[in-house]
Write a protein that binds this DNA or RNA. Structure first.
Lengths: 140, 140
DNA sequence: AATGCACATGAGAATGATTTGCAAGAAAGA
DNA sequence: TCTTTCTTGCAAATCATTCTCATGTGCATT
């Protein structure tokens, strides 16, 4: 199993938090750590099965919940499609979803982040987290 | 049936677009026109049934799709909960969701809208629609 | 006001993503 | 190694939403 550089960091973070590291969780975590895209549960099943054929879809879902609760993974719930997942080791960013292909592009804007905080503050709120999704179409 | 002031406007907009106005659609539309909150499909069934007991959940969903396609209603797909709906007679706005109470507050920022368009354009995209949700907590 | 027909409806079955119950299996600290 | 507690696979259950199909109904046209 070829593990991405950040795999060890993630696994140790989980161990420190008392999360049991099973064969199945290793397979799933290593797929996530190495993924350059945003796989959904089914895609994760396919990729993780290649490493450990015993992983089932239930375990994919249960593991994703555990990883999310422990801050290692983020769930991306876009409209009308199964949830996609990514590790949280990359800096914060938002997403553009290509409405024709379903492709997801990441971007980041400090200006927007700042404006959001200002607006929330004006209304007496403090942002816990946010989601900014741009559903867009390739030009011309 | 007590209709909100904007009901007529919405119904006429639909007629102009060749959409048939049925008893059930009148009931649903009048509920939406009068709603000050963001009801989901089940809540709409309850409220519309009080006006016309023949409306079914299938028709609620079908009608919402038609209303959305005709630009009269907007679907709000928040995470982990059934979709909520609102009429689009109010100008465009985004939402702050109070993570403690579930309350939804509306806000609008032209600056953010503009930045979004700029970012998308830079990456070669044209925004079809977007979703900006601030999950926040009341200060102190 | 009557007619025709394309479109809308209700009831319930189907779908698709996600979750859960349960019996068997496996981490990991002692 | 032993024991406790958590995980797993499988299949069945859920939940929001969509679809099928036989029947009903807007509404443009007589």
């Amino acid at each position: 199993m070829v593990k991405a550089e950040n795999y060890e960091i993630l696994e140790n973070a989980l161990r420190d938090r008392g999360v049991r590291i099973t064969r199945q969780r290793q397979a799933i975590l290593s797929v996530l750590a190495g993924a350059k895209d945003h796989p959904d549960a089914n895609e994760l099943l396919v990729r993780a099965s290649a490493i450990d054929p015993t992983v089932s879809l239930s375990t994919i879902y249960r593991t994703l919940t555990v990883l999310e609760e422990n801050g290692v993974v983020q769930r991306l719930s876009f409209e009308g499609v199964p949830a996609k997942f990514e590790t949280t080791d990359a800096p914060h960013h938002d997403h553009i979803i290509d409405v024709d292909t379903g492709d997801v592009v990441e971007f980041r804007s400090d200006k927007i982040e700042k404006l959001q905080a200002e607006i929330a503050a004006e209304l007496g709120y403090e942002i816990v987290h946010h989601r900014l999704d741009l559903y867009a179409r390739r030009k011309q």
